[in-house]
Design a protein around this nucleic acid. Structure first.
Lengths: 225, 225
DNA sequence: TATTTTTGATAGTAATACTACCATACAGAA
DNA sequence: TTCTGTATGGTAGTATTACTATCAAAAATA
């Protein structure tokens, strides 16, 4: 039996559900590839349409604009990651071990997940590192947040902060530490590859070093260093 | 005697030095105001020109495009901040006290500095929080970095990492901890005001809490908690 | 077969991101 | 005083972007 992982997406993110048709799935697939290759600024619906072999108007039937599409992709990613985390930390009793596992999942490149054929998780991970924060670093954060566009991100952060509190109930900043871990897992990766003097990983450029740094940061903060 | 603080800017950032003429200074002044009000995405040279009372072509004589202008403003900000830090931590012998001072400067809103009449540092600080990372989260990071556009940011990071190492010479991740502090001083501020559930400061919304969090994070990591 | 959904194709508009060119005003040097 | 360079103003024009609207054909479904 083949299981199909379906991530429930916020309906306000799209005009027509891209998972409901071939063209929609193609839009997701090719937008990941194109944003990865060209970067979000240079990415346009026209180029995407040419890539797919359809027309601009076709894309606009699914997404209002490229910002919504980016928010969709990030929401999908965080939803997918939360599933990975809950799956891979299932049945682990010790919260410290769970937390270590979470840090590894955040900081380590993901392999493409065969379960979702139309999204390449490995490329999407790279996109989130470079473009992810642009989803909320805008003037419309407030409205976007009201429409719950960032719920998957906030949910993931809440999951991590709960584990932190389980590790150390008296720690005063579980949520801020959780968002710090999540953001830094990505930023340190970006810095390592693009502005290496901002990190201590410029020589080896290994993701395992980012994990080690974050583990050190977290567990000394929680008094379990 | 009135001292004029002049920050030496990378010449590749502009076509004509904006500090060398009235129009140039007006471009800096109004671009800070306009980006603050409209956000970087909605900011255009046309609107800026209308704001100043000049023409689009006039702006293009100074800056190649709005990305370069953003990089200019961020570089200016980091240069200015490094000066503030070196000035305000001057003659403080204890590196731990210096580090606390640095964290406060990073996390606390700045007052407008009268010394530089054409740039409102307080608004610029808000811009850097929301738009600052867009200066390097692009496909051209590599080339921009080769041209030394991010030198002020990297210099600041180096200054902070040196203080960290003075506090605790055996600590293994001084650079990554430095970039973490700098980024998180801004991100936690943004989250506090826009996505408060990602932080522990949603109720009081005080910048002093961000300082407290960062101090706790840093000094426990350095074994001085 | 009838009907709804999906897609393809074309056209058009307003705004954005520039480049080019010419005229003028003014400051300092010869 | 004239010459020269610098700073600015104004106008035009182009390619691309970001959309909206409309119509017809094809495909899926009832």
């Amino acid at each position: 039996m083949k299981l199909q992982l379906q991530i429930k997406m916020n309906e306000a993110l799209y005009l027509k559900n891209p998972e409901s048709s071939d063209l929609g799935k193609n839009i997701l697939k090719h937008s990941v590839q194109l944003i990865y290759k060209a970067g979000f600024e240079a990415f346009t619906f026209k180029k995407l349409a040419e890539n797919i072999g359809t027309t601009e108007a076709g894309i606009y039937r699914y997404f209002e604009n490229k910002h919504k599409l980016l928010v969709y992709l990030t929401a999908w990613y965080w939803g997918w990651l939360e599933f990975q985390i809950s799956f891979q930390t299932n049945n682990i009793a010790d919260p410290a071990i769970r937390l270590k596992k979470v840090i590894n999942l955040l900081a380590t490149a993901v392999e493409d997940d065969e379960q979702t054929s139309y999204i390449n998780e490995s490329l999407l991970h790279q996109i989130i590192i470079t473009e992810g924060s642009k989803a909320y670093l805008t003037k419309q954060v407030g409205e976007d947040n009201k429409q719950q566009f960032f719920k998957p991100y906030k949910d993931l952060c809440a999951v991590v902060s709960v584990i932190i509190s389980e590790c150390s109930p008296e720690y005063k900043y579980p949520k801020s530490l959780a968002s710090t871990i999540i953001e830094m897992a990505h930023f340190q990766n970006f810095f390592m590859n693009n502005l290496p003097s901002l990190t201590d990983f410029g020589v080896a450029k290994e993701e395992s070093e980012i994990s080690a740094f974050l583990n050190d940061l977290v567990f000394t903060s929680l008094g379990k260093g």
